[in-house]
Design a protein around this nucleic acid. Structure first.
Lengths: 361, 361
DNA sequence: CTGAAAGCGCTAACAA
DNA sequence: TTGTTAGCGCTTTCAG
């Protein structure tokens, strides 16, 4: 009853069936090139012995494994669920298996993980990588790589149309009468964060709104709570968060402080993760075509793996759209500073001590 | 600039460095058994050539790949996030990589996926498999296997203490004065579902409560909504859902019908997924130690892979606990049938037409 | 249609 | 410390 009892090899089958191993091989890979009877017998014997082809050895000569790596920064982030799902289905349709590489929000860790995986897979999808551009290019030299959510020159990328999404969000806020927005920033190493902030500034300038940036914060609910604490020191009537998680965390924390969302502050997130419509109030968010991103990335990767010339120049850009739910509303004009805020915009100084307190950490 | 330019082999390096390939091999795997200078030179040359060991070929002789497969029924289900995270960290600490196998809620698909993976990995964690016990045992014959969330004889398993969790849930409901509960069932092939329902019946009997079962429903928010539609035809004051997703879906649907949760009906879920505390009202749920499950499963699997004798007899049972939040409350006694229900328990027939309507789909 | 033989890239065993 | 020689399990010529 020893667990791995030396699985039978092709030679075992060959011997048992009284044929050459090459015949067995053919019987499995190229049926039709083996007489019906022989094939029959081989399969029967193989079944009895419990023989299975070893994809490892099979992959050896050509060096392809029918596996692709999917590197993601934090598997706990719901943002990835649909992406993984899309990637997974595209991969399995093409007969590929996905190797998951959780890189734990760390460029270093990511490199290490990838170094191990790189040798094993036929290609790599870097979803939200935290590595430097040059590190990415290094990796891309070794294996076909597709970068998701980030534009890196000389490497094929799949991104969403952040500028457009941001624009829609800001327009929406402007229509609701908001004049000052706060951006709750995500990780510094995040390309999307930089992109969103930049677009935000530009759009705001164009629409003559005032924006400020707080952060960086971890792209999590907890990060959102921290962001809210800082935000409360100098609130604005509207906030745009790096992603839905941060938005949700902020809404919760703000609500706990006594603010009513969206009455007191409108909040917009990014990504439209599954939880976004489940929270209260349901989150207004810039939706990314998550599953499509996964599918597209894998599709393009596989094309390259199969020999297509990567068109690294222009990143593939997928559209995103604003989903208006209940976390945004018309701006209310305060006569006095909001009761829930740590300190008012107009600067009543009596709670300044608390301000520091809440803002720290 | 062709993408895969035939990565350099160990022989290329050997030639370029003017040594035997075995020396190169040693330089990489057993440093110290090679003179400092030689090693130095080899590594330099290797770096220049961009050489990397091919784990594939390396794995060939012994047949170990340092990969383990994690098979899950639906990657979109948040239930898995923490499990994957736990598994991932345990695996990477031990130098293993995780191969993800989304089996799409289908036993057949699962077998196929596994068949491919089985040959490539050193072991397999079956998280919530939908395969039959015998199919699982077959797989277990080929590779070390750990089954999560299910007890299968002769195969090592890691489960949570469902009976205890259910008991706590029912006790909680009983304390709140509820006398009739409805169980919203999950997939028929789910072991946990059977377990929960059985425990529910037993505990209810003991505590002299009345239970009934609706379903099966898909273990999703949509499934929960469907369940709610059926439930509304003959409501009870409390419901226990197969999992948090179903609970959340039911709460949403019920709320949409005009019911107030928990005032009109108390709802309990299972798993304590990340979203559970974010929804409104925050969900009372039987929490499973998700990350610990992943860690434990991988830990035990790796122990077996390394030669430990699997103790297949008694499943490892992890504790779970009831987390009381806001979706449960004291039972209210209705004088008449609730306004929101399709049909009343006492049977006012005037809305029977609607009943069918809501119940279909 | 089938068998023999030559590797795939690397490691292990044995010499030198 | 290094080189030489066998393979690992399978696929792929190349004969027969």
């Amino acid at each position: 009853m020893d667990q791995p009892p030396r699985p039978p090899t092709i030679d075992d089958v060959a011997k048992a069936a009284g044929v050459a191993s090459s015949t067995v091989s053919r019987a499995f890979s190229r049926p039709g090139r083996v007489s019906f009877e022989t094939s029959e017998r081989i399969h029967r014997v193989a079944a009895e012995l419990g023989y299975r082809t070893t994809s490892l050895a099979r992959a050896l000569p050509g060096g392809t494994t029918s596996m692709i790596a999917l590197a993601i920064s934090d598997i706990t982030n719901p943002f990835y669920y649909e992406i993984i799902r899309g990637a997974q289905s595209a991969a399995s349709e093409a007969g590929y298996t996905i190797l998951l590489a959780d890189t734990q929000e760390s460029g270093t860790h990511e490199r290490a993980t990838l170094d191990r995986a790189v040798a094993t897979v036929d290609g790599i999808v870097l979803a939200t990588t935290r590595m430097s551009d040059s590190a990415i290019r290094m990796t891309a030299k070794q294996r076909p790589v597709i970068v998701l959510n980030r534009a890196v020159s000389d490497v094929p990328c799949v991104i969403t149309d952040n500028p457009r999404g941001v624009r829609r969000a800001v327009e929406h806020l402007a229509e609701l009468g908001h004049q000052r927005l706060t951006y709750l920033a995500g990780p510094e190493a995040s390309w999307a964060d930089g992109m969103r902030w930049r677009s935000l500034r530009e759009t705001a300038m164009e629409l003559e709104l005032h924006v400020r940036r707080l952060g960086p914060f971890p792209p999590t609910v907890a990060g959102g709570a921290r962001a809210a604490a800082e935000f409360a020191a100098h609130p604005t009537s509207a906030v745009v968060a790096y992603n839905d998680l941060v938005a949700i965390g902020a809404i919760r924390a703000l609500t706990a402080m006594g603010a009513r969302i969206p009455r007191d502050v409108s909040v917009i997130g990014f990504d439209n993760i599954f939880t976004a419509e489940l929270v209260t109030p349901p989150l207004t968010t810039v939706a990314a075509p998550l599953a499509a991103m996964g599918r597209t990335a894998v599709g393009n990767l596989l094309a390259i793996v199969r020999g297509a010339r990567p068109r690294a120049q222009a990143p593939v850009t997928l559209p995103c759209r604003l989903i208006v739910r209940r976390s945004t509303a018309h701006r209310r004009r305060y006569r006095t500073s909001p009761a829930w805020a740590t300190t008012s915009v107009s600067g009543s100084a009596d709670s300044a001590g608390r301000s520091t307190d809440a803002g720290s950490r």
